[in-house]
Design a protein around this nucleic acid. Sequence first.
DNA 1: ATATGGATGCAA
DNA 2: TGCATCCATATT
Length: 222
Amino acid sequence: MTYDRAFFAADPVTVARALLGAVLEVGDAAGGTLAGRIVEVEAYGGADDPASHAAPGRTPRSAIMYGPPGVAYVYFVYGMHHCLNFVTCPDGSAGAVLVRALEPLRGRAAMAARRGLDPAAPDRLLGGGPGRLCRSLGIDLSWNGLPVAARLRRPVDAAGRLRLLADAGSPPRIVASPRIGVRRGAEARWRFCDADSRCLSAPASPPDAAQPGASRRVVRSD
DNA sequence: ATATGGATGCAA
DNA sequence: TGCATCCATATT
């Protein structure tokens, strides 16, 4: 699998599923390398997807989702967390894949340190959740727009901070479920998990939606 | 269950 | 400008 621009030019659901199992590598400030295996992702569409940041159309924030594929879209949410996405779809149409969980592979100790956790902390606390993994990897708004396409000869970012490598192991067992934390567009089952990972932000197959009339709020077990 | 707390987009 | 909302997490 080559994570080039053509790969990211596909629709977000296709890209999301194909990204499961890929290894995300980032260079940290100290020159070291942190890496993790992608085990949970969510697909977000364009103006037709009410859950997407692109739903209101082209705005200052969503513009990057309408731009060329294969770059990072990083946003800040709830006043404290960063989330990492990859832009999909051809230039001109909007789409993105949110990275929701990683299994730490390299630089585990550095990740724990960055999060202020004990080195013995479980992998879940390092990579299980979009905010957690960004904090562990040191990803913030300054990463917004960085290219991730593996084939770019001359990355815009001189440090080449974002790299995607093919997974060496066997392909993951993929389970689809509704996206987490979304109210509008909750019907779409556009969350994809490696069902055998123990680093997920929530169970791969959450209990089915409540009876009619029950609260629509998702209860997050952990 | 609840506190946390910045950015975004839209109404006013 | 004000305000509801938001792709979350740690703590009670």
